[in-house]
Amino acid sequence: MSGTSQHQAIGMMSSDSIPLLGRSPAYDVESVRFCYQSNESQAARWVLDNISFHVQEGEVLGVVGPNGSGKTSLLKVLARLMTPQQGRINLFGQDLAAKAQREVACVVGVVPQDSQMLFPFTVAESVLMGRFPHQSRDRWISGFGWESREDLAIAEQAMMTMDIVHLAHRSVTDLSGGERQRTVIARALAQTPKVLLLDEPTAFLDLQHQVEICSVLRRLRDERGLTVVLVSHDLNLVSQYCDRILLLDRGQIVRLGGPDEVIEPAVLESVYRCRVLVDRHPSSGLPRITLPGRHVSGDA
């Protein structure tokens, strides 16, 4: 990788510097400002402050940053769960705000941070709900209507992808954290989305399932050109599995670029306000961070 200190000086990397040229951007985010107080108060703190970037089609983009840096808000704005007060977001060249929720749901799958399961739907029923946005409107408004064979086939395929076919008849209320997370991801895949937005998808998972989910995401990107935006606290995971990383701090983009450009000691120390050690992953050669040992003062 070319000189790291120059990149530091530039601050924010151009989003088009990665070899994914020739594809239209999945997301085109331009000067987006968002805050939770929708009323007039002038002193409103922007949760997202003047953010502009592209998400290329078919890339895995990791979003990282300290607590409260606006990662989840960014994901919700991209999912059209919340509307920014200023700025514009285009999804595959079309204005996101002008689209109906159903249209967005046909293109964008979302895996939220906490998916509580209160009602005893079976895993299969739960995954099949991912077909909802695709089912014709008159059928769902009428209340009845059974899933088509196509819906069943797609849901079953999504369950195989996430390795939960053997759980099909189990109630989602009885699942372990990992099984539940895989069910939610399978539901999002059953939407046959072009873009998958995930908020901390590996937070409750053991090592095996963390690795599995990340490799499935990369695999879906390779096989189907799926675009993935992944919010995570785990810098190492993001470094190993994402094509590009977006580093947020207090609602602003600090850096956007490949792992080598973002996972840099000086950048991370200024954002996270603690010392980190960065070396190379022994097999992939990508940057890897380690927390300082006990004898060093200052901690996260």
Binding site: R80, R102, P112, E125, M129, G130, F132, P133, G143
Partner: peptide
């Protein structure tokens, strides 16, 4: 009774229901 399928999706939670295309 016209809302039976919508109730299924709503039972997942408001945010999930919106990501599945319900107003």
């Amino acid at each position: 009774f016209r809302h039976m399928r919508v109730l299924n999706i709503l039972a997942l939670g408001e945010e999930s229901a919106r990501t599945l295309g319900i107003d």
